[in-house]
Design a protein around this nucleic acid. Structure first.
Length: 422
RNA sequence: GGAGAGGUGUCCGAGUGGCCGAAGGAGCACGAUUGGAAAUCGUGUGUCUGCUGAGAAGUGGAUCGUGGGUUCAAAUCCCACCCUCUCCGCCA
């Protein structure tokens, strides 16, 4: 949620943010509702004040053994009016907050204004894809040849866009997960969490997937749970409705979870292979910090994710997303993309986002400063990394002329010391 | 699914209709003490929010799991729901 003071005192900032993000939201209606709401509140509070004062008098007189009938009658009349107004206020309030939920975060000043991926900025990494001196295959061709992914049977047990890893393929997937977790917990100081992956509505609202991405998630009909679309959800909601002592900050969490996405609206796209699937594995990094250190920690988080790609020796680049390409709740986002030689595309393997206090406001996550002041924390997260695309890149970039895949050195200890998938 | 117990501030915990935003303790902050620290002593200390104010602040309102109800007045009484714990059943 945005800071409501902005709406009242500086609505143009919000208006500009909406423009930059190409969000079509009727801000004037909200401002009007807010004004209406405030005036009702003022009125109600005045009445309640009177009522409370009367009640107090009644109490005092009764204790003195008197029966203040007249006062009680007055108070009753007041109380009835208050009750009615309370109802009106609730209606206006509900309308207002329902509308405010749809206001996205304000982009950070360093974010380029733009429409879509063409307007994203290049930060660092490879400018051009690497060359190969032989005809490269796509990952689905290699995987079938090596019998490490079984597309037909994946479709049989679940449908299209599901992955069935087999044999050394399954082991490679497990190696990636373990490598990422070990890297971030041992080298980068994150605390490992293994959270539940069925999460209730409140959690998805807290991190900002709801209300906007409702149709992109799987929902359990009878229990109302959503299948976790990213570990960001449980990791960020862990501290919902808490006030964290400042000296405990920053908090660093890393978690492996499967992630579930309906990928609604992408039907004809990327149907071959495992680039876009309904269930995938991801190691997610989440940090909670004091707002003043947010952007410094954010750059470190990016570097932590980048390190994983570097150690795997994959060709990558880091892009800064423009206003039009960022998700709803983010104030700034970097994408790490690796090049897949077979598909001849850059694939996003990590999206590193900072939310300022937007998520914290929604999820009510606060901290108490050493001086005793309470304020919302700053949250951020990034994939470190999502496996299917790393898997693609390993197959497509590490393929050899003779049809094998060389295993990066950092993974070999997780693969019984093997140097090749063959 | 059945039976019982419980949900109060940062935490523990008292509180069964008005003098309760809430005893007591811990924690935290500040001060004293100390060469420094621990211990000790003193003082302060919930959160959200309306209005006025440049601000310091002032003055209201709300808040004791959530939502309703009774009452002039609710942490306290009534109803529904949610969550946690214990026991039983069921499943793994």
């Amino acid at each position: 949620m945005i800071d409501l003071k902005l709406l009242k005192d500086d609505p143009d900032v919000v208006r500009q943010a909406l423009l930059d993000r190409h969000e079509n939201i009727d801000l004037d209606k909200m401002i009007k509702l807010d004004k209406q709401r405030r005036s009702i509140i003022t009125e109600i509070q005045e009445l309640k004040h009177q009522r409370n004062a009367l009640s107090e008098k009644v109490g005092k007189l009764k204790r003195e053994g008197k029966e203040p009938q007249e006062l009680m009658k007055q108070a009753k009349e007041l109380a009835e009016r208050v009750k009615e107004l309370d109802k009106t206020q609730k209606e206006v309030d509900d309308k207002f907050f329902e509308a405010v939920k749809w206001i996205p975060n304000i982009p950070h000043g360093s974010v380029p204004v733009g429409q879509g991926s063409d307007d994203n900025g290049f930060i660092r990494g490879l400018k051009k894809p690497p060359d190969f001196d032989f005809d490269v295959l796509t990952h689905w061709e290699i995987a079938e040849a090596l019998d490490i992914l079984d597309f037909k049977r994946a479709a049989k047990v679940s449908g299209s866009r599901f992955i069935l890893y087999k044999g050394i393929g399954a082991k490679l997937e497990r190696a990636l997960i373990n490598f990422f977790l070990d890297l971030h917990t041992v080298q980068h100081g994150y605390t490992e969490i293994m959270p539940p992956v069925l999460n209730p509505t409140d959690c998805l609202y807290g991190t900002g997937q709801l209300p906007k991405l409702e149709s992109d998630m799987y929902k359990c009909r009878d229990d109302g749970f959503y299948l976790c679309p990213t570990a960001e959800v449980p990791l960020t909601n862990m501290h919902r409705d808490e006030i964290i002592p400042e000296k405990q900050l920053p908090l660093y969490y890393a978690a492996y979870t499967p992630c579930f996405r309906r990928e609604a609206g992408s039907y004809g796209k990327d149907v071959r292979g495992i680039k876009r699937v309904h269930q995938f594995n991801k190691v997610e990094l989440v940090k909670y910090t004091v707002p003043a250190h947010g952007y410094e920690e954010f750059e470190k988080l990016l570097a932590d994710a980048e390190q994983a790609v570097k150690l795997l020796g994959l060709p990558y680049r880091i892009m800064l997303l423009c206003t039009g390409d960022m998700t709803f709740a983010a104030a700034k986002t970097y994408d790490i993309e690796i090049y897949a030689a077979g598909m001849k595309e850059w694939l996003e393997v990590s999206s590193v986002s900072i939310y300022d206090q937007y998520q914290a406001r929604r999820a009510n996550i606060r901290y108490r400063s050493t001086k005793g002041k309470v304020d919302y924390v700053c949250t951020m997260n990034g994939s470190g990394l999502a496996t299917p695309r790393v898997f693609i890149a390993l197959l497509e970039n590490n393929q050899t002329k003779d049809g094998r895949i060389s295993i990066p050195q950092v993974l070999q200890s997780y693969m019984d010391g093997k140097e090749y998938v063959e």
